[in-house]
Computed example of a mutant assay.
Amino acid sequence: MRDIALVGIGKIATDQHVPALAASEDWRLVATVSRSGTVEGVEAFTDFDAFLEGRPEVGTVSLCLPPVPRYAYAEAALRAGRHVMLEKPPGATLAEVQALARLADEAGLTLYATWHSRMAPGVAPARDWLADKRIERVAIDWREDVRRWHPGQEWVFEPGGMGVFDPGINALSILTAILPFDIHVQQATLEVPENRQTPIGAEIALSGNVRAVFDWRHEGEQTWRIEVDTDAGRLTLSEGGHRLTIDGAEQGPAAGGAPIPGEYPALYARMAELVGAGASDVDLAPMIHVADAMTLGRRETARPFEF
């Protein structure tokens, strides 16, 4: 097993990263860095530089910080000779993640820009089924309640927080994993609350007859659905990629009854593979589509939003 440190002990870390590491056969969580959060039984630091100096033998760090401060931590870790795993989105800008990728390559270190939704069990079978099909239409319907998933987290509506694209990028990460061709944003409409900086709703049209609707105000049943109409029928990924149907028939994502790992355990298994192979994985396609939507999007003022 390899030693790893977890940086940023907030909701996503405690809900997903800590349990995934506790169950991992590849990793041993030996340190955390956070201003306030800790993990029972694990050495806790409040300063990242103090961790880097005090635990030089810990060769890998997983960064669960919000996107805006993440670059400085990742750069410091790479310059200190540590492999780096990035929570999604991998940074606040494309340029900074590209700079990190170059730095990791020059240092011979692993940099992994993770997209957890790609690890949902229906995604790989969907990609395989679509590989030889003619795709006629794609519709994404991604609606959830920001108060439920990001309670009181004001940073999501600040510059760099991405607003509704924080969940929307999950859909785009699945889309770019399953389509057998490249796509690009053609137009977008962004609904921005008058008291906020980032959108709470968005509609996007992409090439290839792809349409996406994202809404962060949805208080009913949470909806994470992608429909793909093809010359061989309709493929549907629902429940964020965990359920796959073709023309309404359920498809078994785990062939032969093999156990299905959770998204985050699968991410950490992938990180172990990358470190072992001396490789990196920095796919920025989902982030490029968000950046393009922000650039091309027509902004409409929405009613004020408060948590």
Results as ranks from 00 to 15, higher is better:
residue 56 P to W: 01
residue 102 R to I: 02
residue 75 E to K: 01
residue 144 E to P: 06
residue 90 P to T: 07
residue 271 M to H: 09
residue 213 V to Q: 14
residue 54 G to E: 06
residue 254 A to K: 11
residue 173 S to K: 07
residue 247 D to R: 09
residue 36 S to L: 05
residue 2 R to W: 03
residue 54 G to A: 14
residue 45 F to T: 04
residue 296 L to P: 08
residue 249 A to Y: 11
residue 214 F to A: 05
residue 12 I to W: 10
residue 221 E to D: 15
residue 220 G to F: 03
residue 256 G to R: 12
residue 165 F to W: 14
residue 263 E to S: 14
residue 36 S to T: 12
residue 245 T to F: 10
residue 218 H to D: 03
residue 170 N to H: 14
residue 166 D to Q: 10
residue 247 D to A: 08
residue 286 P to L: 06
residue 64 C to D: 12
residue 90 P to L: 07
residue 25 E to D: 15
residue 264 Y to N: 12
residue 151 P to T: 01
residue 39 V to S: 06
residue 271 M to Y: 05
residue 258 A to E: 13
residue 104 A to V: 01
residue 279 A to H: 03
residue 278 G to W: 04
residue 87 E to S: 12
residue 203 E to D: 05
residue 24 S to R: 02
residue 247 D to W: 04
residue 8 G to E: 00
residue 191 E to R: 13
residue 143 R to L: 07
residue 299 R to S: 09
residue 161 G to F: 00
residue 304 P to C: 03
residue 160 G to Y: 01
residue 188 A to F: 04
residue 143 R to K: 11
residue 33 V to F: 00
residue 178 I to Q: 12
residue 105 D to H: 11
residue 235 L to Y: 08
residue 223 T to A: 09
residue 60 T to M: 00
residue 157 F to K: 04
residue 297 G to F: 06
residue 236 T to E: 08
residue 214 F to D: 08
residue 255 A to E: 14
residue 81 G to E: 06
residue 109 L to K: 08
residue 57 E to P: 09
residue 281 D to C: 01
residue 291 A to I: 00
residue 99 A to Y: 00
residue 206 L to K: 06
residue 135 I to G: 03
residue 143 R to Q: 06
residue 38 T to I: 11
residue 141 D to W: 03
residue 281 D to F: 02
residue 85 M to D: 01
residue 127 R to I: 13
residue 164 V to R: 05
residue 278 G to N: 05
residue 296 L to T: 09
residue 154 E to Y: 06
residue 247 D to P: 08
residue 146 V to I: 13
residue 136 E to N: 10
residue 277 A to H: 05
residue 54 G to L: 11
residue 66 P to N: 03
residue 248 G to S: 00
residue 242 H to E: 13
residue 176 T to Y: 07
